[in-house]
């Protein structure tokens, strides 16, 4: 992890993809800026990072109840930077996709 000028850690794509699950969960609930390989910056609150594909699920909350969810594919991540350590949307993120009903998966 390298510290940028502002003291906020910025991770390169390869460095990010090599993170262990415990390092990945550090990003969850935080506001991050993800630069993809096409140069686009995706900003949002991290809902989760898939440990298999390393895809990042970002949520942007709006004033009303509609939110925008962006999944940046793991292979397309160029840099990841934490914008804010605040976890103010933690409850909403927890509720967002959680399912009460039990789903049975077949083998």
């Amino acid at each position: 992890m390298t510290a940028s000028e502002s003291g906020v850690p910025t991770l390169g794509g390869d460095e990010f993809r090599q993170q262990t699950p415990k390092e990945m969960i550090f990003f969850v609930h935080k506001l991050v800026e993800v630069e993809s390989i096409d140069g686009k910056i995706h900003t949002g609150w991290v809902h989760t990072i898939d440990p298999v594909s390393k895809s990042i699920v970002l949520v942007q909350f709006s004033e009303d109840t509609s939110n925008e969810c962006t999944v940046v594919m793991g292979h397309a991540v160029k840099t990841v930077r934490i914008s804010s350590d605040a976890t103010e949307h933690e409850d909403e993120l927890e509720r967002l996709f959680s399912r009460e009903t039990k789903i049975t998966f077949t083998k």
Binding site: T20, P21, K22, M24, I25, V28, S36, D38, K40, H47, T48, I49, D50, P51, V52, S55, V57, C69, V71, L96, F97, S98, R99, I103
Partner: peptide, 28 residues
């Protein structure tokens, strides 16, 4: 611990995929 964390992250991702089901998605 690593496995438990990995399972939690994966579960949340699978829930996201379930939420995406039948939704209109824009792919870049």
């Amino acid at each position: 611990e690593q496995q438990a964390t990995r399972a939690l992250l994966r579960k949340r991702f699978l829930e996201t995929l379930l939420a995406m089901n039948n939704q209109k998605i824009t792919f870049s």
